[in-house]
Amino acid sequence: MAVQGSNANPVVRNFPKILTYIVLTLGAFVMVLPFIWMLLTSVKIDSEIFGDSLKWLPSQFDFQNYSNAFTQTNMGRLFANTVFVTAVSVFSQVILGSMAGYAFARLHFKGKNILFFSLLATMMVPFEVLIIPVFLFVRAFPLAGGNNLLGQGGTGLFNTYAGLIFPNLISVFSIFLFRQFYLRFPHEIEEAAIVDGCSRAGVFWRILLPNSRPVMATMALFAFLWSWNDFLWPLVVVKKDALKTLQLGLSLFNQEQGTQWAELMAASTMAVVPVIILYLVLQGFLTKGAVTSGID
């Protein structure tokens, strides 16, 4: 913008910048307004929600909606279930992804490229397409839920935590991300450790893994969002109330309550706020990680 800056009037000179701000602010308003509206609705009393004219701000803050929503959805249980399922999924995706990523980036073995690219190709296949065979596999899991060795007779991992977690144990994306990271990792350190008598597995556990914190944080964030926000799989694999996840509970709350908008918005707020906080915290960590992503 400096080239056309011969104009002395600052408003005219800065016009492109001002326009950028206006457009971006309008867009951001559209992005955020639904959340603001959720927050505002969640503390209103019914007469203000169903009034003839729309009222933006509540005349009084009614936090009763939050406690009602919390008890009616049994949110403590939903939270505990979701935290457990998410924690196991994130841990597993990070560890298994880093192990496989290391093997694909640093080790030589026959058929490596064919194997890697056929796994990569499955990234294009949406999970929803495979839900029938995966569901049948989980239901016919051997020696679980009353099944015999051949997976017959019972319900397998259907209606269990293991069934909820199972499809989230691994992601191709995680393998891909760690492989890219390890491909760029300096070879000298690894070679020096091997010369010093460290085993290959030791190189991974002691040198590569501790130094992959930035990519681990990135992957953990993705895995967290996928698992925490997952809806279709919990919907089909869990029917017991005690096993329901936050998203599932929230979706059913709506059906039972019909038009209890304030309580529904309160429940939604409680479901989304932890995610936003965690995102902001991890985002800080990620930007820091990008700066210090070298070797300590």
């Binding site: 639904p34 809806f231 998203q247």
Partner: peptide
């Protein structure tokens, strides 16, 4: 935000 929360809002 999850698809469920977005849908509810």
């Amino acid at each position: 935000s999850s698809i469920v929360v977005s849908a509810m809002i």
